[in-house]
Design a binder for these strands. Structure first.
Lengths: 331, 331
DNA sequence: CTGAAAGCGCTTACAG
DNA sequence: CTGAAAGCGCTTACAG
């Protein structure tokens, strides 16, 4: 059987004996409609099984209630907590999230931005800062709210909610030096963010009088298996490190598992520090020392500025959510 | 400076010296427009910085090019690979994915379905089957493609792409029995799917002459820490199990880490089997025996039926992607 | 609190 | 291969 055409708002209006304008008002701001009128409309909607067409609504009001979230990946991402919390909050406000994947070399970023603009999304949320200058200009030329998260550029495209990766790296250096470690080895995922943390670490380490740390790179997205591999590659180093600074908790976890299997005692023979403070870090044996980034806090601040913007209020350009050292057993 | 209003298709038409209809055709099916005309249009678009309004397009054509993906969560989900692969493929076809979170008790499922219908999405993809009868009816009453994934109900709402959780559970029972284990203990996440696997396991186990297995439940989403906890709770059992059947690889991993810390040798003193065959399972020490579910295969088949539907072709109602035992060190 | 009317920016069947 | 015209289903400023 062919399905009947979906009823339109006008048919609801006829059924309820009011004008389309009133039905529209009832749907969008129920309070301005008289109680009795509202009731009739409600019944008409129920009777006809009316489902509004939000595409028409978006066109007429030029508000799509669509937010684009552009992330590198979701398979094994540190951002998942942030994204999840954002989707949750946005849903409460009646917004929907269009999730687009940009890959780690951002090769699809520009195309996804164009698509988001064409959909007339109310905002574009990016994880990580946009490196490409042309892309930044493109975004600035459009009347769309842009929020860069997890990073804190000097001059945000529009708004940034994040923390200084450089400062985080420096803090790790101070922390480890304070604990008496002297020969750190860095395992650095090949992402701009991890790179900045490594830079921050090294600068601080040298400044405090330490020797140049050894380092190696691993591909992003980083995962458990790379940690294991990283442990084995320690054997090739000229100086034996006393602590391994991992670019993510997954790398730290893999490295620990491999070290334990090799009979190495952690942290006595080798200390390990992760990054991100994933839930697993506190549950591992030994528990993993890490740097806590509060992804939900980032999400909260992002939603807050989004709401402020929607109300036409002025908002800060740079919001620093900071980070926090979490000392546990592994270092 | 106030941003100028975005140029409309009509302005592009004027600039290019053609009618709006021709510009629209060029945008949607470039091949039907003459080469020279296309070139002029391209230049006009470039010159004006035209970005089409897809909301208007969706209204006029009643095709939104929007696909809704409804998943319980993304923070620690077995579905992430599937979702990621689907988003990738859909993006290639110019579709966007609206990602909605339904929670593990599906409390938000109905609301998210209504929202998706209101956005006139071309398809709704669900992970897991929809239990609620009223919701199933609601979906059937609408002219939208509905794909249930990761499960294989007898009577899909529309189309199902998945596997039989019951058969998977039974297969694990046969596998372990064949390897000589006799006292399995089940750690079952409180999800309908995990429950079905447990049922399948127990039925098969009893049928093969085994004794009723012991079991305990853990909350979903299941994570590493629960595995550790589960290990400790083994001490409370009357019979000491020789193998623990875990509802996910995360649980298996946590359990292994805790067992090793307690000086238990795996699999000699206690065997462990996971579920899902996450990347990490093959990287763990010891490597984790698991059941492989090919999330990307599910994604591929989902995209395939979506494309077939778009072309108006008849498609299968139930697509079984199966599963595969992966024997490794842990059991 | 409610209605009449114009408009949002596209697509497409029809005709040529 | 291209154009004129109608229509997609809403919202909102204006008036009462």
């Amino acid at each position: 059987m062919p399905l009947p055409r979906a009823p339109r708002l006008e048919e609801v209006a006829v059924e309820a004996g009011v004008s389309p304008a009133t039905v529209s008002r009832y749907l969008n701001s129920p309070r301005v409609v008289a109680e009795a009128t509202g009731k009739r409309i409600r019944q008409a909607i129920e009777k006809l099984g009316y489902v509004p067409n939000l595409n028409a609504g978006a066109l007429a009001s030029s508000k799509s209630r669509l937010i684009a979230a552009l992330v590198p990946d979701i398979a094994a991402s540190m951002f998942n907590d942030t994204v999840e919390a954002m989707i949750d909050s946005l849903a409460e406000d009646g917004n929907s999230v269009v999730l687009a994947l940009t890959g780690y070399d951002n090769h699809r970023l520009l195309a996804e931005i164009e698509l988001a603009l064409a959909r007339r999304v109310d905002a574009i949320i990016l994880t990580g800062i946009v490196g490409d200058k042309r892309t930044r200009e493109r975004l600035r030329a459009h009347p769309v709210t842009v929020i860069e998260t997890w990073g804190l550029p000097e001059d945000p495209i529009d708004i940034a909610v994040g923390f200084s990766h450089r400062a985080a790296g420096a803090e790790v250096a101070r922390f480890l030096r304070g604990r008496g470690y002297r020969r750190p080895h860095l395992v650095v995922p090949t992402s701009p963010r991890a790179e900045r943390r490594a830079t921050g670490f090294i600068e601080q380490w040298l400044q405090d009088g330490g020797d140049e740390p050894t380092r190696m790179s691993v591909a992003v997205p980083s995962f458990f298996g790379q940690g294991r591999l990283s442990f084995r590659m320690l054997a090739d180093l000229d100086v034996r490190p006393d602590v391994v600074v991992c670019g993510s908790d997954w790398i730290a976890q893999g490295l620990i598992v491999e070290a334990l299997a090799a009979g190495i005692c952690i942290p006595d023979q080798l200390a390990v520090i992760g990054f991100g403070n994933l839930r697993m870090a506190g549950d591992m044996r030994p528990t993993i020392t890490s740097v806590d980034i509060d992804g939900k806090h980032i999400a909260r601040e992002t939603i807050r500025v989004l709401r402020a913007r929607a109300l036409g209020r002025e908002v800060e350009k740079r919001i620093d959510v900071g980070f926090r050292m979490v000392a546990r057993e592994s270092a």
